[in-house]
């Protein structure tokens, strides 16, 4: 709070400077130091990766067939996983924030389990449910002849499983801090619950939904453990960029670095594009 006030007080310029600012400034120097260290902590490994990159043959490695195949697969599956999370996650967040669900605290904790679970264990859990001998999977196999593991659909499911909590937490937070009086007003004017959700609630928490979707997409792009366990690794079908990168480490570490840079650049480009399109202060999805 004090940081915000200091920043606001300083920027207009002509406003007279009070003596009370001094101790605040000292605090902000300490905070700035910590913030700078935090930034270095996040950025330094990336810089080291850039410095060690095989720039001479980077382009040749990055635009090779297998690399583009893996990148395209990653983009498609991460987009599908984000869509799946939006369709299922937004209503779930709404239920957590707006209804008097029994054991809401417990449900809220359970929803975040995929965040703390090692993704490989998530993959084992998905196999236990949807594998050929899984709780549900064995019936799919026996009755419909459908087998989910080792398909592109399995990649989407694995990514959505680990990415969903990011969306739910983000939208849940936005809903809980949003003003409910508008929804109540709409309801008293005779709007149905579904109508209020669609026309009042969603626009209210639009930025929260988009922020959650962005986190969700980023997590899906980087997903490795659940995918390799549940979906396997076949070029063009289930071998996403993180799997291709890990495999490249086996034979050609320079290729792994090149692929990592492609993944980073692509992900950052998508995230920046989403942010500038949807997260402007005035904007929001209609």
């Amino acid at each position: 709070m004090s940081m915000v006030e200091t920043g606001v007080a300083r920027s207009p310029g002509p406003r007279p400077v009070g003596t009370a600012r001094r101790p605040r400034e000292r605090t902000s120097v300490g905070l700035a130091l910590l913030a700078g260290t935090g930034l270095v902590f996040v950025v330094a490994p990336f810089v080291a990766l850039l410095l060690g990159a095989p720039w001479g043959r980077l382009l040749g490695l990055a635009v090779s067939g297998p690399a583009l195949e893996a990148l395209w697969l990653s983009l498609r599956t991460a987009t599908a996983a984000t869509a799946l999370c939006l369709v299922l996650g937004v209503p779930l967040a709404w239920a957590l924030a707006r209804t008097t669900l029994p054991c809401r605290g417990v449900v809220r904790s359970v929803v975040t389990v995929p965040m703390v679970l090692p993704p490989v264990v998530g993959g084992v859990a998905l196999l236990a449910l949807l594998g050929r001998r899984g709780l549900v999977g064995r019936h799919l196999d026996a009755w419909l002849g459908v087998s989910i593991p080792f398909t592109t659909g399995a990649v989407v499911i694995a990514e959505a499983f680990v990415a969903m909590p990011f969306l739910v937490l983000s939208v849940d937070g936005a809903l809980r801090s949003a003003d409910v009086s508008l929804e109540r007003a709409a309801a008293t004017l005779g709007a149905s619950r579904w109508y209020v959700f669609r026309r009042v609630t969603l626009p209210l928490v639009g930025p929260g939904v988009v922020a959650g979707a962005v986190l969700c997409f980023a997590r899906a792009m980087g997903e490795f453990g659940a995918t390799v366990t549940f979906a396997g690794s076949l070029p063009g079908v289930t071998r996403t960029m993180p799997l291709a990168i890990y495999l490249a480490m086996e034979s050609d570490p320079e290729l792994a670095v090149a692929l990592s840079l492609v993944l980073i650049v692509t992900s950052v480009a998508v995230l920046v594009a989403l942010r500038s399109r949807w997260l402007r202060p005035s904007g929001g999805p209609s």
Binding site: L127, G131, R132, R133, P149, F150, V228, A231, G232, S233, L234, P235, T238, R239, Y246, L247, E250
Partner: peptide, 20 residues
């Protein structure tokens, strides 16, 4: 005509043990 190329031999074995 493999359905997956696993990262190491134990990963292949795991898929067999699980019946996947």
């Amino acid at each position: 005509a493999p359905d997956t190329y696993e990262q190491d031999v134990r990963a292949v074995l795991t898929k067999v043990i699980l019946g996947e």
